[in-house]
Each structure stands twice: as C-alpha cells, then as structure tokens.
C-alpha cells in the first residue's frame, strides 16, 4: 500500500531454492504413515491368523487379479461414469438453482423451508422409492447421487451469490455490464470460492451414494460387486474392493484439488496479498 512506485509482486509459485531436497522430504512425509500402517496391519494379520483379516500381500495380489481383468470395464468404469454423471448433474442443478435463490430474496423466502425439509431426508431412504418409480436402472442411480450431492453445492452457491461485493455490483451497473457477461464475469466468479467448497463436499457425498445406489437390487457396479464378495465370503476380494474405493476417493480428491487451485488462483492471491505476503 506504499507509494505507487512499488514494483508489482511476482506471481505465486516462484521456484524456491533447494527444490529437490524439499521434494524428497515431502515425498517421505506423504508415504511414511501409510508404510507404517501397512506394516502394522501385516504384523497383526499374521499374529492373529484370523480368516477375515488377510495380509496386505494377499489383498494386493487379489487386487490385481480381481480388478485388473474384465471387472474394470464391466463394473468399475460404469460406476465411475455414473459418479461423474451424478456429480455433474448435481453441480449444474445446485449452481443453477443457487444463483436463482441467491439473487432473489423473494424466491428464497418461498423455497427455503421446502428445501430444508428435502435436505433433511437421507438420500439412501429414497432408493426403494425411486426403484418403484423409475425402476432399477441408471436413472435411479443418478437420481440417488444427485439427491445427496446437490445440497452442499446449492447452499454454498446461495451464500456465495449473496456475498457478491456491492461495490462490484455498482461498478457493473455503471459500465452497463449485464446479461450473460454479468452472470459469468461477476456472479459466478465472485461465488466461485464458495461453489468450489460446496463441490468438494458434494463429491465425497457422491462417492458414498454411488456405492449405496448399487447395493440394492443391482446386478453390476462397484457397490454391487463388493456386496457380492461379502455375501460369498470372498474376504480378500472384499478387502480389495474397499481398497479400490479408498484409492478412487483419494485420486478424485487430488484431481479436484488441482482443478480448485487453477480456478481459485485469484482468490488465493487476494488472500495472500491481504495477509501481506
């Protein structure tokens, strides 16, 4: 905030000295605890000798055998596809409805009590109902995923839209910025930090509901397969399915974080500038 001659700060992400050593240390920090936990499990499973607790070695071998084959195409990919489909629909619906509700206090006053009611219904109880109405098919599974993941996205979008800076709103009015450009440049970008926070929550809910939607009366999918393994006492196979779900969630979270950093680069910059970095 000093004199106007202050040079512009360089962008974030400038290379720090000693990069290689830092990367190695960070990698060690990441793998240290997993290695420790796997070691503990190994020791426990050998020591106990319980049938339900196979060693990590067995699970790993089964993992490759079970999921490396036809099941990847038959069960895993369709599940992941439905997950993305449901999440995308939930995002479009949540952001779209959130913008309408965020902009209009009248519509908000009418819809909010009803929305609070629907939000309170746990999505899994909708599964039998949806099976009756739409049958056991992709539509039903998508509906279950959407019915859960839309809420955090919707509520966060409403908050974000309501928090658009009044000075920016006046600026847009003065310069005649309206319509589509107003929506995309002002409203959506302003609300993007909250929208991304909502999507992050929505994504984890979507993964849970993807599995649940396949547990009832289904004949394929990741959730169905794991349930089948449990019912047939295929214990290492069951564990490998749980492992696969964990890995899937982890991977999606990493990918989401990557996208989030791209979209919210400006937001992190503003916050860093406000902290005086």
């Amino acid at each position: 905030m000093s004199a106007a001659t202050t040079p512009a700060r360089t962008g974030a992400g400038a290379a720090k000295p000693g990069g290689a050593g830092r990367t190695a240390l960070r990698a060690l920090q990441i793998v240290l605890l997993p290695i420790l936990l796997i070691g503990l499990w190994w020791a426990a499973s050998i020591a106990s000798g319980v049938y339900y607790l196979p060693t990590p070695g067995e699970i790993a071998a089964t993992f490759v055998e079970v999921w490396g084959s036809q099941r990847l195409a038959d069960d895993v990919l369709p599940s992941v596809g439905r997950l993305f489909g449901g999440f995308a629909l939930g995002t479009v619906g949540g952001v779209g409805l959130g913008i309408v509700l965020g902009l209009s206090s009248r519509i908000r006053a009418v819809l909010e009590p009803v929305l609070e009611f629907f939000r309170a219904i746990p999505p899994p109880v909708l599964v039998p109902l949806l099976m009756l109405f739409v049958g056991v098919n992709t539509t039903m599974k998508l509906a279950v995923i959407v019915s859960g993941c839309i809420w955090p996205i919707l509520l966060n979008t409403i908050e974000g839209v309501r928090a658009v800076d009044p000075v920016l709103i006046d600026t847009c009015r003065c310069y005649g910025i309206r319509g589509r450009r107003w929506l995309t440049t002002l409203v959506l970008r302003s609300a993007s930090p909250q929208i991304m926070a909502g999507m992050r929550q929505g994504l984890s809910i979507a993964i849970i509901l993807m599995v649940i939607s396949e547990m009832f009366a289904s004949s394929s999918g990741l959730g169905y397969t794991i349930i089948q393994f449990q019912r047939t006492f295929a214990i290492p196979e069951m564990w490998s399915g749980i492992l696969l779900l964990g890995l899937l969630g982890f991977l999606l979270s990493v990918l989401f974080g990557f996208a989030e950093r791209k979209v919210l680069k400006w937001y992190n910059g503003v916050r860093a500038a406000a902290r005086g970095e």
Partner: peptide
C-alpha cells in the same frame, strides 16, 4: 452510457479474477 465512475474502494471495484 456517457458517464464513468471511480469509487473510493479501489480494492473492491476491480475484478480480482481479471
């Protein structure tokens, strides 16, 4: 259309994402 305004709150009248 023929009028432009400069606000006091410079930090809030510019679009931080542009």
């Amino acid at each position: 259309r023929d009028m432009a305004v400069v606000f006091q709150e410079y930090g809030r009248s510019l679009f931080p994402w542009l």
